[in-house]
């Protein structure tokens, strides 16, 4: 009994492995309809990162921004206080700036992962990585208001890992695959729709998107323009990618 099943499974596996490139060329209609021509893909059995004009544009943007934000110096802030007759120029301390710069680069790398991956679980992982590095950018700031907002954002981040990974797990349980190329061809059903909604909620929370922007607006009062700009970039890039992902799943 067991042997028979094993041979069947292997056959199926072999078949898929051999015809993978064919499947990808013919069947990726959903992705082609959304992104344009598929320029290339790397077949790692099931996880297939693919390159489209859309992902190329995103990667180019993210790389350019990351490089420029990483080489920029933090700006000076002129501060005046009551009962004082001087204008102070304040900026980020060197040690703090180094750490935040590192976090900025990490966030950029995670974003590249977000926009290129062809596997929804990896997508979820990279999105949470951007969230973590976003908080890391704000961890060294010595401002109670900013830290308070960052803490609230952190709470949302942790809670939202539930819908994010939960949605992925629901889709996996329902379809048996995590690969976007395969999922794009499957017909949608109620459970996949629930999974998609959960995925959207999760990504919205992790990327500090629309309803959770309030904490973000508080957070960006901190000093250090290049690092803070990275956070805005990351949340908008995550949003652009999640639109694509949800449309492919549907």
């Amino acid at each position: 009994m067991e042997e028979r099943n094993l041979t069947i499974d292997l056959d199926l596996f072999d078949n898929i492995y051999r015809n993978l490139s064919v499947i990808w060329c013919i069947k990726m209609n959903d992705i082609v309809d959304i992104n344009g021509l598929i320029i290339g893909h790397f077949p790692f059995v099931d996880i297939v990162p693919y390159i489209t004009p859309f992902s190329l544009a995103l990667v180019a943007t993210i790389v350019t921004f990351t490089v420029f934000l990483a080489i920029s110096n933090p700006e000076y802030r002129s501060i005046t206080r009551f009962k004082e007759d001087v204008v102070r120029k304040e900026t980020v301390e060197k040690k703090e700036a180094r750490f935040r710069r590192f976090m900025t680069i990490l966030c950029g790398v995670a974003l590249i992962g977000v926009v290129t991956t062809g596997d929804i679980f990896n997508f979820a992982l990279f999105v949470s990585l951007t969230g973590i590095s976003n908080i890391g950018i704000f961890a060294g700031i010595k401002d109670t208001h900013v830290l308070d907002a960052a803490f609230q954002y952190g709470l949302v981040l942790m809670i939202c890992s539930l819908p994010l990974f939960g949605g992925v797990a629901l889709i996996l349980a329902n379809t048996g695959t995590l690969s976007l190329g395969v999922l794009g061809n499957l017909p949608s059903n109620q459970i996949i729709n629930v999974g998609r909604t959960l995925l959207l909620i999760g990504a919205v929370g992790e990327g500090a998107l629309a309803p959770f922007f309030a904490t973000k607006v508080e957070m960006i009062r901190a000093k250090g323009a290049p690092f803070i700009n990275m956070m805005h970039l990351s949340s908008l890039m995550v949003f652009t990618r999640i639109i694509e992902l949800l449309l492919i799943l549907g």
Binding site: I135, A139, G140, L147, F151, G154, L155, L157, M158
Partner: peptide, 9 residues
């Protein structure tokens, strides 16, 4: 990371 924020705050 969130506990780090809490400590720092």
């Amino acid at each position: 990371v969130v506990s780090e924020i809490l400590i720092s705050r």
